[in-house]
Amino acid sequence: MAAVAPARLAALTRMRCEIFQTAYNPTSVRTGAKYLRARLRGPSMIRYYPDELTVAHFNRMPGGFKIQNWEEYQRLADVEEKKRRGKGVPKKAKSKAESRRMSRKR
């Protein structure tokens, strides 16, 4: 089999690139083209979790709906009840010395 001259092979590659409209890059230099060629992944990424229709979302929709959220109502009522019995959230410490972390015995 007769060896083909390298120049002829290069010419063939260049012509092939011209015909199929691809970039002629014989030395395989990194041109960063793959970052432009790749599809954008954001649009499909934000569609991963299905949209959940909550009461708060529904009330914010156009149309001026006002639906009572019973679970939220119950939660707030429970918090009030706990506060009344002195079982509420502790006061925020004003200084470092007041914090429970500091007063804890080792």
Partner: peptide
């Protein structure tokens, strides 16, 4: 999950700009 949703929206909002910078940064020419 909320954090993940936040990340997804952040990626979507900045994707085109990031790709442009990536193209420049990785282009050896």
């Amino acid at each position: 999950v909320l954090r993940d949703i936040k990340a997804r929206h952040g990626v979507n909002a900045n994707e085109v700009l990031r790709r442009a910078y990536l193209y420049v940064a990785r282009n050896q020419t």
